[in-house]
Computed example of a mutant assay.
Amino acid sequence: MRKALIVGIDHYQHLKDLSGCVNDARSMTAALERHGDAEASVNFDQPRLLTAARPAGFVARAELREAVRRLFDDDAEIALFYFAGHGWVDDTGGFLCASDCYDGNDGLALSEVMTFANKSAARNKIIVLDSCHSGVAANHPMLRGTAEISSGVTILTASTEEQYADETPGGGAGVFTSLFVDALDGAAANLVGEITPGSVYAHIDQSLGSWAQRPVFKTNVKRFVSLRKVPAPIPLDQLRALTRHFPTPDHDFPLDPSYEPERSPDQLADPSIPPPDPERTEVFQVLQSYAKVNLLRPVGAPHMWHAAIGSRSCRLTPLGKHYWRLVDKGRL
C-alpha cells in the first residue's frame, strides 16, 4: 500500500494569498498517481488531495493536522506527505500555514509532523515541503544543525531554514515542485526506469545554481524506495547481457568492419573490407545501445562506426562497470 497526502494552499484568510501552490499540488498528484510505464499502472492509490484555491477554498489547521496524522497512522509501504503553501519559522521551530492562520506560528508545527512520521509504522515516510524556511524540518530547536529523524524517514525541502521558496518566472508554479515533477517524469530515472528520493534530489540540486534557493535533503534509510517507474532507456534483457558481451568489467571488446552494416560506396568496392556479418551486426546494435546511455565508449575513435570500420575496440565506462557488477551479482 502506497499512500500520499498532497496539500496545496493558495487562499489564506489573514495572510497574503499565493498563486501556484494548488497547481503544484495537482501536478504532484498527476505525477504520483500512476507509473509512467506503457500500462500506466497504479502507483499511489488514490492520493488524497487537499487544496485551497482562491477565493473560496479553505484548508483549516485542524483538518490539515488530522490528515497528516491519518496518513502516518498505519503500516503502509510508503506514506508520502507533500505540502505547498506558506511556511514560517521562529526560535521554537517551523510551521506549515493553513488557510485560517493569523500569523505563522499558529500553523501546524513541523515538530508535530515529525512526531507523526517518526512514530509511524509505515516502512518509508517521505516528507516533501515546497514552502519558505522548510529546511528547518526535523531540526532540534536547541541544537542548531542537528536533525532528529527515525529510521525510514526522508525529507526533501524547497529551501533552507533561512531561505524563501521561489516561484517559476511568471508565477503559477514553484521552482522546486516543477523540478520535482520533471524528475518524476523521467529526468531522474536510472537505467531500469526507477526514480528514488535520492535521484530526485540530485536532479533538483544540479538544476539550481549556487545563488538560487538551495534544496535540503535529510534521510535515515538503509535503502531508497522507488517513487515511480518510467520506461527504461534500454531494454532490461540488453542490460542483463552486459556480462555476456564483457566477461570482465575491464574487457576490451574487439571490433572490425564485419560488425558495422553501413558502408560507403568506396568501402563496398574495397575487397579488403569484409562484408557485414548478420550475427555480429546484431551484437553491434546492442553495443550501440550501451553507448547511447553511456555504458561504454569506443577506444581510439570518435564514434562506434569509426571503431568498427577502423578495427578498434570498445570498453565499459565507470557507469557501465557499475551496472556490470549489478548484473554479475544478480541485482537486476
Rank of each mutant, 00 (worst) to 15 (best):
G320N: 03
D328K: 15
N43R: 09
G310Q: 09
A308F: 07
A189F: 05
S131Y: 01
I273H: 08
D90V: 09
R61F: 10
P169T: 14
P271E: 13
L18Q: 01
V230N: 06
L255H: 03
A109Q: 13
T157H: 04
G300I: 08
N43E: 05
F253S: 01
T248M: 09
A53S: 14
L80M: 09
L15F: 07
T281L: 09
D24E: 06
D266A: 15
K329R: 15
L71W: 05
E39L: 10
V230K: 07
D182Y: 05
V293S: 03
R297P: 00
P235K: 13
E279R: 13
M1Q: 12
T51P: 01
D237V: 11
W305S: 10
D266G: 12
D90W: 11
H140M: 06
M304T: 06
P233H: 10
D74G: 10
G85S: 08
A301N: 09
A40P: 00
I273R: 10
D266H: 12
A232T: 09
F95H: 14
S131L: 00
K218N: 06
T157K: 02
L319S: 07
C101R: 05
D205S: 15
E260C: 08
L316T: 01
H245N: 05
L326R: 15
R54G: 04
S19I: 11
G20Q: 03
Y12W: 03
E162M: 13
E279F: 11
S264K: 12
Q163V: 07
L50N: 08
V221H: 06
R144W: 13
Y201G: 01
L108K: 04
E262G: 07
V59H: 07
E161G: 10
P318E: 13
A98Y: 04
Q238R: 13
V200G: 01
C97V: 12
T281F: 09
D91T: 14
N118A: 09
L49F: 10
R297V: 15
L49E: 11
T92A: 14
G93Q: 06
H251K: 09
E63Y: 07
A232I: 06
P275I: 08
S289Y: 07
R54D: 12
P47C: 07
T146M: 11
P47G: 03
D106Q: 15
L319A: 11
M28H: 04
R315P: 00
A269D: 14
D182W: 05
R34K: 12
H322L: 13
V7M: 03
Y323M: 01
A31R: 01
K329P: 00
A56N: 15
A121S: 13
V225M: 10
S120K: 05
R65C: 05
T154P: 02
Q267L: 13
S41C: 03
S226F: 10
R65F: 02
H251P: 00
V192L: 10
S41F: 04
N220E: 06
G145V: 03
P254R: 07
E77K: 14
R48A: 09
T115F: 10
A30E: 14
V175G: 01
L319H: 08
D10Q: 06
G171Y: 08
C97Y: 03
D250W: 12
Q213W: 04
T157R: 03
V293Q: 05
A62H: 11
N124S: 10
L287Q: 03
L71E: 08
F81S: 03
I204W: 05
R34M: 00
A62Y: 08
S258A: 14
T160F: 04
